[in-house]
Amino acid sequence: MTSASSPPPQVPAPSGTRLRLADQPRERRTARKIDGAWWPRSYDLAAELPGLLAGLPRAWGRISSVLVHGDIWLDCPERVDVAGQAVHVGRRDSPTASDTVCLLAPGRGRWDLLVVPPGTAGAEAGRLMEQAVTQGA
């Protein structure tokens, strides 16, 4: 599923958030499966999610639900409070989506981000993030 409203070009993320977004909507690239890349500092979703959501373009709207791979994230909560609003966290166990996070905004769309493992070396993380935004992973 793709968004009816496309994301704007890459925007700077808040200080400390390691996020890269594709500068063209996936509708224009038929092979695109990934809308960007996120390199969290840990697998603590409750600690990492607020920074990720704060770094997203306003045009994406309020993210109400996040889908993550259940085996990867430590102590994955069902809800995370972000800026005073609850964000539902769903788990999925699909082996094809273990390295992605899916963001859902009602009436706005769905965006999929590659998750670069927190322990990845800087150069390799940069390469993976660049590949995700230029080739759609």
Rank of each mutant, 00 (worst) to 15 (best):
Q85N: 04
S98G: 10
G107W: 15
D99M: 14
G70H: 06
D71C: 07
T96M: 15
V80A: 07
G122H: 07
L52H: 04
R92S: 05
D81Y: 01
V80F: 09
G84Q: 03
R58C: 01
G109F: 11
R108C: 14
D112A: 11
L53I: 02
L67A: 10
S65V: 09
V115F: 04
T96A: 15
V89A: 01
Q85W: 03
G90M: 05
D81F: 05
L103H: 08
D71E: 06
A86V: 03
A121K: 09
L49K: 02
P40N: 09
C76F: 06
D93A: 00
D75L: 15
L56V: 00
V89P: 02
G109K: 13
D71I: 05
A54Q: 10
G61K: 08
D93N: 03
G55M: 07
G61S: 12
R92M: 01
D44K: 15
D93R: 10
G61M: 08
P40C: 13
L52Y: 02
A97C: 10
L114W: 06
T120P: 03
P57Q: 12
G61D: 04
G51P: 06
A121M: 11
P118L: 14
R41S: 12
D44P: 04
V87M: 07
V89I: 11
D81R: 09
R79A: 09
L74K: 00
D112I: 14
L113H: 01
A97Q: 11
A86P: 04
I72P: 04
S64L: 08
W60V: 11
E48Y: 11
D99L: 12
S94I: 04
A54F: 00
G51M: 13
L45A: 12
V68A: 08
S94R: 06
G55S: 08
I72V: 12
L45D: 01
R92K: 07
S42A: 12
W73N: 05
T100R: 13
P50V: 14
A59T: 10
E48C: 14
H88G: 04
A97T: 13
C76G: 00
P77R: 12
A83P: 03
W39E: 02
A105Q: 12
R79W: 01
S94Q: 01
A46G: 09
S65N: 00
V82R: 05
S64N: 01
A59C: 03
I63E: 03
R58L: 15
L113N: 08
A105I: 13
L104F: 13
W60Q: 15
W111F: 14
A46N: 10
R108N: 14
A46W: 05
R62W: 04
W60T: 09
L52W: 03
L74A: 02
H69S: 12
G51F: 06
G51E: 11
G84V: 08
R41N: 11
Q85L: 08
I72G: 03
D93F: 07
T96K: 15
P117G: 10
D71F: 08
R41P: 03
W60Y: 06
G109P: 07
A47T: 13
T120E: 07
L67K: 02
R91L: 04
S94C: 07
L113W: 06
V87Y: 02
S98P: 01
V66Q: 05
R91C: 07
V116G: 03
T100V: 15
I63L: 08
V101R: 09
P117M: 14
E78Y: 06
V89H: 04
G84K: 01
S64V: 07
